[in-house]
Design a protein around this nucleic acid. Structure first.
Length: 285
DNA sequence: ATGATTTCCTGTAGGC
DNA sequence: TGCCTACAGGAAATCA
């Protein structure tokens, strides 16, 4: 499930490999994978790739002339650089042929929760999946984080997964950040002290940076641009580790459902009475 | 209005 | 061994 570190890993690889390349053709193998801009695709031929950006989990490929490709990978999406003569994976939905005639960028996505959106940069502010995105988690500052958390009653875990206030965290890095900050996933977001908020922010940014250095986390599907796998899953402490001993205290890692998503945590290391506080607040309403 | 639930989709893991 | 079900989840829609 590509989250910020995985998308950033792909972004860096793409910057190295494809910046300045001209798009000779964009082939759509599955039309309903194009979120918006299907009709405009023919006007992209011949345009060079000018810059490659990212906001949260969205990869933004800027072309000359103000065109932009927004790639979202959902949870099983991949962006791969392949030779054009290589066989096409059955779940390949997009092929972007490059001007060397040898290489192409492919977007593959078995579960199809991802998409490609094509538009002019001037239309970005009318594309809600983009405009709704909050501040990128790596750019978040403490004062802003405090303001965002204030008054919120939802569990901190749910807050972290919501891309509208802060963009980039998914289930893996939300759980790993909360563990490293010693904060229970059910804690009401607005109940965090300034100290806890500071520590959580540090944990989030530390975990994200460490993961980027390790090329992201590969659980099932994730691959980088060249098909290589991430290594950060080796440093996961709680995600996917229900029933294992906590690396900190040895108590068993638990898995609960928060906001319809699995949440992995250590009851002992992540404030023991947090659940009670949450439940009391819920009952008082 | 807020939070909880459902929906999309397919590969894989687990149970019997 | 093989089938069948449950589960994984990003984000939008829908429900309560």
């Amino acid at each position: 499930m590509p989250e910020l570190p995985e998308v950033e890993t792909i972004r860096r690889a793409l910057e190295k490999q494809a910046l300045g390349c001209r798009i000779t053709n964009l082939i759509v193998l599955r039309k309903d994978y194009i979120q918006t801009g299907l009709k405009q695709i023919s006007s992209l031929k011949g345009l060079p790739i000018e810059a490659i950006g990212r906001r949260g989990k969205i990869l933004a490929v800027h072309l000359t002339g103000g065109w932009i490709l927004l790639h979202h990978l959902g949870m099983s999406g991949r962006i791969l650089l392949k030779r054009s003569n290589e066989p096409i994976d059955p779940h390949t939905h997009i092929r972007i042929l490059l001007d060397d005639g040898v290489w192409e960028i492919r977007q593959c996505d078995a579960r199809r929760f991802g998409y490609l959106a094509v538009m002019r940069e001037s239309d970005l502010d009318r594309f809600s999946p983009w405009t709704r995105l909050g501040v990128d988690a790596l750019d978040l500052r403490l004062s802003v984080f405090c303001d965002l958390l204030r008054q919120r009653k939802q569990p901190i875990k749910s807050f972290l997964l919501d891309q509208r206030p802060v963009a980039g965290l998914g289930n893996i890095y939300a759980d790993e950040s909360l563990f490293r900050a010693g904060i229970h996933p059910l804690r009401p977001a607005g109940s965090l002290s300034r100290e806890e908020t500071k520590y959580l922010l540090q944990s989030i940014q530390h975990v994200l940076r460490e993961s980027i250095s390790a090329g992201g986390s590969t659980i099932n599907d994730y691959q980088s641009l060249d098909g290589s796998l991430g290594e950060f899953q080796r440093q996961h402490r709680v995600y996917g580790k229900a029933g294992d001993p906590c690396p900190n205290c040895g108590a068993l890692i638990e898995k609960i459902i928060v906001g319809g998503r699995s949440a992995h945590f250590c009851r002992k290391c992540q404030s023991a009475d947090a659940t009670r506080i949450f439940m009391e607040q819920k009952e008082n309403r």
